[in-house]
Design a protein around this nucleic acid. Structure first.
Lengths: 155, 155
DNA sequence: AGTGAAATTTATCTAAC
DNA sequence: GTTAGATAAATTTCACT
């Protein structure tokens, strides 16, 4: 774990909300010079504290009108089966997020689809044709309250 | 829904991966001039197709070593109770994501914590002291496979 | 070490077409 | 939609604490 001082934390907090701020704007927030802000950001990126910088696209605006939470159980929790399913997740664009978990299910997926029919087709392709899968349970997302990757950062 | 042509889609795809590309780099990707790329991005932002631009911070790098998926059931699914819980989600930094869902549970949360003890304390504060909550089920995340907001964007 | 100021390089914005 | 010039920002250099 990397050492982070107050300025780093202030920078990360700001950049998690909006990474298009100029270094001058950032300087105002963290009370350092623009140059210092840029240097710190470069360091944070090279050290992997900042993993990436992305635009957040509205699913609805690009025609993905439904989002599902899917809990998936595998037939057996054998390493090769788990790895195969992980690969399937990575290669499937409809799966926006995938978590390998302990507990009632083996995987939690967030899946987007154009509509319900589209989701139906997806389940046929992705679940029913996969013999490693014991079962899955779908929950329809009615409201996305937080879908940011904002992580609480403390001093 | 906004009309998007091939260039818009190419722009969105690129910006979902990396929004720090210069307009010249983008121009190379979408085969337009840098100015055209900037104009399109400005439009996509003003129309809300691009909801925001953020840095992705590594949870581990900032000391959040554990991630949990929590399925929450409310005592009653009454509008005011649901709204109150939505507000609680929004105001709670540990909750990285929150979805209001249909099905077995009422909410699905992604929660980060420094460690298990920290998560314990969180559950006490957030769940046990809240009388609107019937129950919750925690799944420990062993592997984050996809935790991006990359949405499949099609022509 | 890490900081800040000024000069340089680079990118973005504002036209004009 | 493009190209070119003006504006603004990021980067580098360097002196300082």
């Amino acid at each position: 774990m990397v050492e982070l001082d107050r300025a780093d934390i202030a920078l990360l907090r700001a950049m998690q909300k909006n990474n298009r701020l100029t270094s001058e704007e950032l300087a105002g927030v963290v009370h350092l010079s623009p140059t210092a802000c840029q240097r710190r950001l470069r360091r944070l990126r090279s050290e992997g504290v900042i993993e990436g910088d992305v635009s957040i696209v509205s699913p609805k605006a690009v025609g993905r009108h439904v989002t599902m939470i899917v809990m998936v159980s595998l037939e057996r929790e054998r390493a090769d089966i788990v790895d195969r399913f992980k690969a399937a997740i990575r290669n499937t664009r409809e799966v926006m997020m995938g978590f390998y978990v302990t507990g009632d299910a083996d995987f939690m997926l967030v899946v987007t689809a154009r509509d319900m029919e589209d989701y139906e087709q997806f389940t046929r392709r992705f679940f029913y044709e996969n013999h490693d899968i014991k079962g899955f349970k779908t929950m329809v997302v009615m409201d996305r309250l937080k879908a940011s990757f904002a992580i609480p950062i403390e001093a």
